[in-house]
Computed example of a mutant assay.
Amino acid sequence: MSTNLIGLEKSGAQALAEQLNGLLANYQVLYMNVRGFHWNVQGANFFELHAKFEEIYDQLLIKVDELAERILTLGSQPLHGFSDYLVRSAIEEAKEVHDGHLAIENILSSYQRLLRLQRQILTAASELGDEGTVSLLSDYISQQEKESWMLAAYQGRRA
């Protein structure tokens, strides 16, 4: 069995990196969506949502970088073309969203997709013995579960 630099079986690490590239694509599209929500939100809740969306996109940007670096650590190349992201992402571009509640619903639905995808990748990483990826995704899942609850509560509904 051939292993990579960090001791993981090469073909398994390559397959995992491919899944992480799909996750990276979803994060990049969501990042740009939330950036747009931040820029374009209007209405009575402008100030609080403008600040909240900035907080969210700052967190997403950190995760984008961490995912790309994890893919590199696994011995693969992260996607870095936006056209590649649009093809690979299950999260679609959100354009011309000015209503804060619609923006939050978009974020919540995007988090649901991310959570499903991350749980699948976490299982594959665990089976490979890749504790680094497991730890990273566990943190993401925990944070997004809490954020989902809080955003749903803001919308006046249960998570």
Rank of each mutant, 00 (worst) to 15 (best):
70 R>I: 12
94 A>P: 01
128 L>T: 07
80 H>V: 07
27 Y>A: 07
129 G>K: 11
83 S>N: 08
80 H>F: 13
111 Y>A: 07
111 Y>D: 11
1 M>F: 05
141 I>S: 00
105 E>G: 01
149 W>C: 05
94 A>H: 13
93 E>H: 01
53 F>S: 03
143 Q>G: 07
17 A>P: 01
134 V>I: 00
144 Q>G: 02
149 W>H: 04
144 Q>P: 01
101 H>S: 13
33 N>P: 03
55 E>L: 13
151 L>Y: 02
108 L>Q: 07
67 L>G: 12
154 Y>K: 04
93 E>W: 02
101 H>A: 13
80 H>W: 08
119 R>H: 09
7 G>P: 09
121 I>C: 07
66 E>F: 01
41 V>H: 04
75 G>W: 02
142 S>W: 06
97 V>L: 11
148 S>K: 08
142 S>N: 11
88 R>E: 15
54 E>V: 03
125 A>M: 10
58 D>H: 07
118 Q>G: 10
46 F>W: 06
121 I>R: 09
109 S>T: 12
119 R>S: 12
146 K>D: 05
129 G>Q: 10
53 F>V: 04
107 I>L: 09
108 L>M: 07
78 P>Y: 10
43 G>S: 06
129 G>H: 09
40 N>T: 03
91 I>D: 05
144 Q>I: 04
71 I>N: 11
44 A>T: 12
119 R>V: 01
136 L>E: 01
53 F>D: 02
158 R>M: 09
60 L>S: 05
93 E>R: 05
151 L>K: 00
46 F>Q: 09
46 F>C: 03
4 N>E: 04
97 V>D: 08
110 S>E: 05
92 E>A: 15
97 V>R: 06
97 V>N: 04
47 F>S: 12
119 R>P: 00
4 N>F: 01
131 E>T: 11
71 I>G: 06
30 L>P: 03
49 L>M: 05
149 W>M: 08
9 E>Y: 10
143 Q>T: 09
66 E>L: 09
56 I>R: 01
108 L>C: 10
36 G>L: 12
98 H>S: 13
80 H>G: 13
100 G>T: 00
36 G>E: 14
133 T>S: 15
100 G>R: 01
85 Y>K: 04
3 T>H: 08
50 H>C: 10
100 G>L: 02
37 F>L: 15
24 L>P: 08
155 Q>C: 06
134 V>P: 00
159 A>N: 13
65 D>E: 12
83 S>Y: 03
101 H>Q: 13
159 A>F: 14
113 R>K: 15
45 N>K: 10
135 S>V: 02
50 H>K: 07
45 N>E: 13
100 G>M: 04
52 K>F: 11
99 D>A: 12
112 Q>D: 15
12 G>C: 02
48 E>P: 02
61 L>Y: 14
152 A>Q: 05
142 S>Q: 13
136 L>I: 02
23 L>Q: 13
109 S>M: 07
16 L>R: 01
28 Q>Y: 08
55 E>D: 15
70 R>Q: 15
129 G>I: 09
138 S>A: 14
23 L>K: 03
25 A>E: 06
11 S>Q: 12
49 L>C: 03
70 R>W: 10
134 V>G: 01
30 L>A: 11
21 N>A: 06
43 G>A: 07
4 N>Y: 00
